[in-house]
Amino acid sequence: MSKVGIISNPASGKDIRRLIAFASVMDNVEKTNQIKRIVMGIDSTGVDEILIMPDYYCFGLRVVSDLNSVRLKAKISVLDMPVTATMEDTVNAAKIMGEMGVGCIVTLGGDGTNRAVAIGSRKTPLVPLSTGTNNVFPIMVEATVAGIAAGITAQNILNGDGFSYIHKRLAIIKDGREIGMALIDAVVVDQLFVSSRAVWELPDVRQIVCTRADAKNIGLTSVAGVLHPLGAREAKGLHLRIGDGDLKVRAAVLPGLFADVGVQELQVLDPGDEVQVSLKPSIIALDGEREVAVQPSDDVKIRIEIDGPPVVEIDKVLSAAAAKGFFKVKN
């Protein structure tokens, strides 16, 4: 029986970046709409079952109710799990979906949402849809199309490899034990509190460790992106030491917000390499959100690994399915 999961974060797109920069806004009404389109896309491919994560906004119940008059072939339901209205819901839902043998998860949110999914499940292929401009991991693609790609992936319709790739990730190691992870970047900032989570004061940034760097993305990885581009599929990572020095780059650190950032050192990392967090006490921001507090007595390292979640290559899936005649209708 083929199953696709949908995880949408009702809290995404509401953080303080709307106040300090010009971050995009996607309200929950539009997310609900997108989920409907995802569901229709998945259903068009003949998947047996669609599972939606429950949340405080009740995306799942709204979608099921709104699609009441649409004849879906797939069985659609909301996962039976407690809702805490925290990131734990996403972690938990991804875990349950993984255990239920879901063949693909469509995520709707930002880098942080996908990080939470990856904490819960690193085996299930992801179709990550972006709900804003400030993301690197999820992509901007029409939700209907994402649903189709997820449906094809979950049913294993295409033979062979090459339709997804394993994403890199950064493990945060404290005293030898993994205490957190990031998919895109881990940034050490000279602050004491997680508080409102976003990172925008560049003078506070000391180290950037990232799995990807591309000048066409925004955020702190763009600092690396304009110096040393690094693709998502390359088995490397980057470590930048930030501070006054000869080298300065102008980077869009938030949507519409630029900063001149001094780079003291740029180091290319191989899988398994570890970067020592040198500033203590400090805060490590994971995928753009201040997350881990480093205390004076802690020994914290950031390690790059190639064992993140598989990411579906939507273009390749759709063109291969088309070549195979998947979209042809029999008379």
Binding site: K14, D15, I16, R18, V194, S195, S196
Partner: peptide, 11 residues
């Protein structure tokens, strides 16, 4: 409009 954790005074 933004959402913050109201139990976190620094936030």
């Amino acid at each position: 409009g933004v959402v913050v954790d109201g139990q976190d005074v620094v936030a």
